[in-house]
Simulated assay, not measured.
Amino acid sequence: MSGATPVVTTQAPAPAGPYSQAILAGGFVFIAGQTPKLLDGTRLLDRPFDEQVRQTMENLRAVAVASGGTLADAVKVNVFLRPGCDVAAFNAIYETYVSHPLPARITTISDLAVGDVEIDAVLWLG
């Protein structure tokens, strides 16, 4: 993977598998999916939806900062929510973490095994 640099931070949970927290490549940062997990690896599966969303966004923010950017640099975000989750409640929290112009986004309903939410992002640092 020539020209790609992994991002590693202890300010976000370690990956749960064989992947990097993020990869820097060509002025972009590709942040791996973040979930409602604490630094020690504890998953917040039984916590209220809003708490899961905030923890997920905090993990995403920590990896963005470790890459040399912020969530204001996000150009694309992928959101995965479990069936029945309150999209309006998600949006209200999400909007406190991102800036205008808002990044392009897709929201997919998915039968996640890692909580009610998973989010990945692409940042542009160029």
Rank of each mutant, 00 (worst) to 15 (best):
G3M: 12
G3P: 07
V7H: 07
T9W: 06
Q11T: 10
Q11M: 10
P13V: 00
P15L: 05
P15H: 14
P15F: 06
A16M: 15
G17T: 02
P18I: 09
S20K: 03
A22G: 07
L24E: 03
L24D: 05
G26I: 11
G27K: 09
I31R: 06
A32F: 01
Q34W: 01
Q34N: 12
L38H: 04
T42C: 05
R43M: 07
R43N: 01
L44R: 07
L44A: 08
L44K: 05
L45I: 09
D46H: 08
D46N: 14
F49S: 02
E51D: 08
Q52V: 11
V53D: 01
R54W: 05
E58G: 01
R61I: 03
R61K: 15
A62Q: 01
A62H: 01
A66M: 15
G68K: 07
G68N: 06
L71F: 07
A72V: 04
D73R: 11
K76C: 02
K76I: 08
V77F: 01
V77L: 02
N78L: 14
V79Q: 08
L81K: 10
L81F: 08
C85E: 10
A89F: 01
A89Q: 12
F90R: 04
I93L: 13
I93H: 06
Y94L: 09
Y94V: 11
T96A: 11
T96I: 08
Y97I: 10
V98E: 03
S99Q: 12
P103R: 13
R105K: 15
I109D: 06
D111G: 00
A113V: 09
V114Y: 03
D116G: 07
D116T: 04
I119A: 13
D120L: 14
A121G: 05
V122R: 15
V122N: 11
V122K: 14
L123F: 15
L123P: 14
W124N: 10
W124S: 13
L125K: 15
